[in-house]
């Protein structure tokens, strides 16, 4: 395997290692080497989370299991499209799970934007990738630190069934840290996209 991601794969090799950007090394091993062992680790972490996300969105257990397997199979098949300078692994898995949920719950069709004219680079910029992964981590912590009622509203916006008007009330809340973290994440993304 190429040595281009040594910062991300370095350290103990433990996927929980915060320094390396969680699960990025495993994703790259799946993308480059079709590494089943790395996929098994990703599966162990994300499969229950995807299933919980689908159940919280109103899918019953059997259908959630079926769709979760579909989502995880897509993770394998599209691994080469994952770009650690653009998203955390959790974010990327979320977008796949969201699209599948739209299909199964027969929600409104959701056309995708055009792709950027360039795809993921074969050797992602390590500094961009590391910065983005760290920002994602901090965003997660900022969400956890929100008052319970505010976090629940945001969860409902993503997991539940909220109208545009209801979501406008959520984004109109003074969400303090999370809003500044979203802005910081935005800055990092803009740097990686230009």
């Amino acid at each position: 395997m190429a040595g281009g991601m040594t910062i991300l794969t370095g350290g103990t090799g433990n996927a929980e290692n915060v320094e390396t950007g969680e699960w990025v090394a495993e994703m790259l091993r799946v993308a480059r080497d079709s590494d089943e062992e790395a996929f098994a680790k990703l599966f162990g972490h994300f499969a229950p989370r995807v299933k919980a996300f689908l159940i919280k969105s109103g899918t019953d257990g059997a259908l959630a299991e079926e769709c979760m397997q579909d989502v995880m199979a897509t993770v394998w098949q599209k691994a080469h499209l994952f770009d650690p300078a653009r998203a955390s692994v959790a974010t990327w898995v979320f977008t796949i799970a969201r699209n599948r949920r739209i299909d199964i719950l027969r929600r409104a069709r959701r056309p995708e934007p055009e792709d950027l004219p360039w795809g993921p680079e074969p050797e992602p910029d390590q500094a961009d990738a590391l910065a983005l992964q760290q920002e994602s981590k901090k965003l997660g912590q900022a969400l956890k630190d929100l008052p319970d009622n505010q976090r629940e509203l945001i969860e409902q916006a993503y997991f539940g069934d909220m109208s545009h008007g209801e979501i406008a009330k959520v984004t109109g809340l003074p969400l303090g840290t999370i809003k500044s973290r979203i802005r910081l994440a935005l800055e990092k993304l803009r740097q990686s996209m230009t």
């Binding site: 989370r49 159940i55 998203a87 955390s88 799970a97 969400l143 979203i182």
Partner: peptide, 28 residues
């Protein structure tokens, strides 16, 4: 870029989606 930072909120919620789950229904 703003959209992708909102996707990151979805990713963070997915990451913590087991935190308050006590049932075993989601068990894989």
């Amino acid at each position: 870029a703003r959209l992708e930072s909102f996707d990151a909120v979805g990713g963070a919620l997915l990451e913590s989606s087991l935190d308050d789950v006590v049932e075993t229904e989601q068990a894989v």
